[in-house]
Simulated scan of single mutants.
Amino acid sequence: MDLLVTYDVETATTEGQRRLRKVAKICEAYGHRVQKSVFEVVCRETDKAHLVRALQEAINPTQDSIRIYRLPTHALDDIEHLGKPRQVDPRGALVI
């Protein structure tokens, strides 16, 4: 499945900055960063369940927000892009 993961983590506190780094590391393990707080993810249903669980454990639900958009199959193959070219293929190898 194709996913778009976006997040907004409170960073005014040291704890919030730690949560931000943790959320970013979790997302990097599952997909490719395409903007500062945006990741493209190609995964299986079981991988998505692990991703969601890890993110839920990492955030403070009263201060942070994560949005996971489930896209149509192969939607990441047909993206209109403006500006700096895409650096990675969303279906390419994921190096952690």
Score class of each variant (00 low, 15 high):
Ala58Pro: 03
Val88Cys: 10
Asp77Tyr: 10
Pro90Ser: 05
His32Pro: 07
Asp78Ser: 13
Ser65Val: 08
Ala58Gln: 12
Ala49His: 01
Arg18Cys: 03
Ile59Ala: 11
Glu45Leu: 03
Glu28Asn: 12
Lys25Gly: 14
Asp78Leu: 03
Leu76Glu: 00
Thr14Phe: 11
Gln56Val: 13
Ile66Gln: 03
Ile26Lys: 01
Val41Ile: 13
Val42Arg: 10
Leu4Ser: 05
Arg44Tyr: 07
Glu15Tyr: 10
Gln35Pro: 02
Gln56Tyr: 14
Ala29Ile: 02
Glu40Arg: 01
Ser65Asp: 11
Ala24Phe: 06
Arg21Asn: 07
Leu94Tyr: 12
Val52Gly: 03
Asp89Pro: 07
Pro61Asp: 11
Val38Glu: 13
Glu10Lys: 15
Arg21Phe: 01
Ala93Pro: 11
Asp8Lys: 02
Leu4Lys: 05
Ile79Pro: 04
Ala75Leu: 04
Tyr7Arg: 00
Glu40Ser: 03
Lys36Leu: 12
Glu45Asn: 09
Pro72Glu: 15
Ser65Met: 09
Val5Leu: 01
Ala12Arg: 14
Glu28Thr: 12
His74Lys: 15
Lys36Met: 05
Glu28Phe: 14
Thr6His: 07
Ala75Ser: 06
Thr14Leu: 15
Thr11Asp: 04
Ile68Ser: 09
Asp64Leu: 10
Tyr7Asp: 00
Thr46Pro: 03
Thr46Lys: 10
Tyr7Cys: 00
Val5Thr: 01
Tyr30Ile: 00
Tyr30Trp: 09
Pro85Gln: 02
Gln17Trp: 02
Glu80Tyr: 15
Val42Thr: 08
Val41Leu: 04
Ser37Val: 06
